[in-house]
Simulated scan of single mutants.
Amino acid sequence: MLGWRLLVSAILIPLLFGLFYLDQRAGVGAPYLLGLCCLLVLRGSWELTHLLKVRKLAPSYPMVCILSLLICIMAWIPFLTSLDGQTPPQTLSLALMAVAFAVSILLIFLKGAIQFQEPGQSMETIGAEILSVSYLGFLLAMLAELRWVIGPETGYIALGSLIISAKMGDIGGYTFGRLWGKQKLVPRLSPGKTWVGGYGALFGAALGSFLWFQITPALFHSNWSAPAWYWSILFGAVIGLVGLVGDLCESLIKRDVGKKDSAELLPGFGGLLDLLDSPLYAGPVAFLMWKLLPLITVSS
């Protein structure tokens, strides 16, 4: 199983970065990334709503899917409509994304009010739909914002840093846990997680981040070079830790509804949500660190 997970990761990650390469050449509007996000919303909304259909929870797939798409598309509007190559400020995209999220909450409550029949179910369903839109629509749109966090032409160095760090953390955690893990980390929530696996997640993410920042800056911009080694390692270690928490949080959802995986999409990985858990959770933290830390060095 370990070899299979490594093989699938070795195939999926290059394919993803190939898509990023095409999208980089397509301009500031990032149409390929938007298409990918829409596909992820379509599949992820189905997984999450079906996962939560237990007890008195009855989230609507069309509602969650449409509202999650609305949040993503609203975040893209400033970049898709930019004229004469002028890039709008990212604050406009973030503001539209936040407004779309707020409107989504209002629409979910409105739907609940219209469909109300008797006490005992409405709040559970409303809560499940808000959770679904928040987890998939808002966090996915926030993750995509890394595309523009340091400029429209070179944004994929930021998005790539998150993906490499998060997935290397997943690989490191799984590898260390399978080879040497004994003491359970959170046995009631995720029986497969061990303390050694947690250390492996930090090590793998820090290593992936260090290599990414050592190799790629000059590929994105001729005046860029690697940051100080400790910033690279700090970024990766934080992403590894937050990604591990994201994995546990997705496990919380699955365990509470009595499921092992979100779906059966890839053997050894589970569903799409099982692949996205750590990047989704770590996205806002990565965005903040790119704003606060000197993660690239600009040559004069």
Rank of each mutant, 00 (worst) to 15 (best):
Y230G: 13
I105A: 04
L139G: 01
L293W: 12
D170G: 11
L6T: 03
E124G: 04
L7C: 12
I130G: 10
R147E: 01
V186A: 05
M74I: 05
V103I: 15
G181R: 09
V149K: 07
S45Y: 01
I71V: 00
I163Y: 02
E124V: 07
W231H: 03
K259S: 08
K254L: 01
F235T: 10
A218I: 13
G29A: 12
P59V: 06
K193A: 04
I71G: 01
L33V: 04
M168G: 05
L241M: 11
V8M: 14
C72P: 02
M142N: 13
S232P: 07
G283H: 08
I164T: 05
G120I: 10
Q214V: 08
I296R: 08
R43P: 08
I163L: 14
V41L: 02
I73H: 03
I126E: 07
P31C: 01
L293Q: 02
A128N: 07
G258E: 11
L272H: 04
V245H: 04
I150N: 11
L110D: 14
G236M: 14
T154A: 05
S209N: 13
K53F: 06
W148H: 05
T91E: 15
E124F: 15
L70K: 09
Q90M: 15
S104E: 05
S262V: 06
L16K: 09
M97T: 11
P284K: 03
I215D: 09
S104P: 06
V298D: 12
T49N: 05
V103Q: 11
R55D: 13
S300V: 13
L107S: 12
G204M: 11
D170M: 00
S68Q: 08
G127E: 10
I233K: 02
D274E: 03
L106F: 15
Q117Y: 07
